[in-house]
């Protein structure tokens, strides 16, 4: 049996007094997952909880031994997240952010430089993000999600905004990282092309819970 990459135990999340997530238990083995759900179902909240971006009740364990509660730093090293609509301080350059991620998360700089070139980010990486289009911002946030040595990468709506060429590069990256054992959890309202990615499973967010099909 494959090892569990991520396990959620009694994870609950509320906004004020309104519960939005109540997941008793969920365990995922390595692979590529499509996280589905209607608008407002809690997909992004679920991803932010998994990424350790927002507080929640319960516990998430990565690789069977890295706990979100007991090992917060190691936990953040193993999980990366790219937002659907990334927002960064206007005065920062793409390079500022990239260096910050590489300095904290680590990883192979040369590999990231190669991805940056493939996505065409190297052309504008020294400019402040205030001058970026939504597509350029999206590409940058996707690149940041591949920094370090993650075991799980969460991609929130990665298929929107970017151009066809970048989409092809992204599919290539997901395939190659997945082959190296990295797990992906992708939200998308667009169907994921089965010719491009072989899905391990589909996660459905509904009624505050996540079910694996």
């Amino acid at each position: 049996m494959s090892e569990t990459v991520i396990a959620l135990h009694a994870v609950k999340k509320s906004y004020q007094d309104t519960p939005v997530l109540d997941i008793a238990s969920l365990a995922l083995i390595p692979g590529i997952y499509w996280l589905q759900g209607e608008n407002g179902a809690g997909k992004t909240t679920c991803m932010k909880v998994m990424a350790g971006l927002i507080p929640f009740k319960g516990e998430i364990v990565l690789n069977g031994n890295v706990s979100s509660r007991q090992h917060p730093v190691q936990f953040r090293r193993l999980i990366n997240y790219a937002e659907a609509e990334p927002l960064y301080p206007s005065f920062l350059t793409g390079r500022d952010l990239l260096e910050l991620y590489l300095n904290t998360k680590g990883g192979d700089r040369e590999q990231i430089r190669a991805i940056s070139e493939k996505l065409g980010i190297d052309v504008f990486v020294n400019n402040p993000v205030s001058s970026y289009s939504s597509g350029m911002l999206k590409k940058l946030s996707l690149l940041l999600a591949f920094t370090g040595n993650p075991v799980l990468i969460l991609l929130d709506e990665p298929l929107i905004t970017i151009d066809v060429q970048a989409l092809r590069v992204l599919y290539d990256l997901i395939r190659s990282y997945s082959a190296k054992g990295v797990t992906f959890c992708i939200t998308s309202h667009q169907p994921i092309d089965p010719a491009e990615l072989t899905l391990t499973g589909t996660l459905k967010v509904a009624h505050k819970n996540i079910t694996l099909n």
Binding site: L53, P72, R76, R77, L87, P89, L97, L100, T104
Partner: peptide
């Protein structure tokens, strides 16, 4: 508004 991503970095408290 803008530094949400910093929370996700593996940086000790």
């Amino acid at each position: 508004s803008y530094l949400n991503f910093v929370q996700q970095l593996p940086v000790p408290l």
